[in-house]
Design a binder for these strands. Structure first.
Lengths: 116, 116
DNA sequence: TGGTTGATCAACTGAAAGGTTGAATAGTGG
DNA sequence: CCACTATTCAACCTTTCAGTTGATCAACCA
């Protein structure tokens, strides 16, 4: 897997368990045990998931006695948002374009193949 | 890898080659050969990348003679945008807090080192 | 001190990703 | 029909992922 920030972030988000962990952390800090509790897998597996999230910068981990509380770090999500921004007009325009296309097909005689 | 739509989309986006392909397609339809041209890898590898993008619903492929033109399909990106939306206030809050902090530092003017 | 709790490290496994090369398919045009 | 072009399929390889179990580390408490 590529190790540029955006790739790390997308890869980290490509797992439902990790997204659930983030959703949990959106409601506040939590320890590894607390995060692991809802999942039918070992603590070590969750620990690995947290490592992936940490490498992507999506969480930061503190140290409070023997607990390692996790906190959500939204900065990489902002990067994703910025990346996706260039495509936003595509879906916002989609209805407009569809209308346009429809009009063109209707007004011209035949449905020729579109060439840009 | 999980096969729910969001996981498929994030996984597809977690590769720079595939993101470049999407960027290319944002400028208009293209054939496999055209898409493969900038990359230092085989046509077959690109074909596999396209299959991943197609499975995620990020592209659709037509059939024009022996060419299979690819077109960008922004719908899954909109889903990502909606998913990320619940976290948007987190980073917007962060800037607000940062501003607040900055104001406090400026107004108090003690020359203390900032502690977060 | 020793025992318990919280979390990570290490080694292993099976499955999937991402690339390769070579063969096959499908459509075009002479 | 034949040759050529565009693309995919198939088999293989290497690396990474996501999980396991067992051992280890670190901090608290009795």
């Amino acid at each position: 897997m590529a190790d540029d920030p955006l790739s790390l972030t997308f890869a980290a988000l490509a797992d439902p368990t990790r997204r659930e962990i983030l959703a949990r952390l959106a409601r506040g800090e939590a320890t590894v045990n607390e995060l692991a509790e809802p999942f039918p897998m070992s603590l070590q597996a969750i620990s690995k998931h947290l490592k992936v999230l940490e490498r992507a910068g999506l969480i930061v981990r503190g140290r409070n006695a023997q607990w390692r509380p996790c906190r959500l770090e939204p900065a990489p999500l902002e990067e994703v948002d910025r990346w996706i921004d260039r495509y936003r007009e595509r879906w916002e325009d989609r209805f407009a374009r569809l209308d346009e296309e429809l009009n063109r097909i209707q007004s011209s005689d035949k449905g020729e193949k579109s060439h840009e």
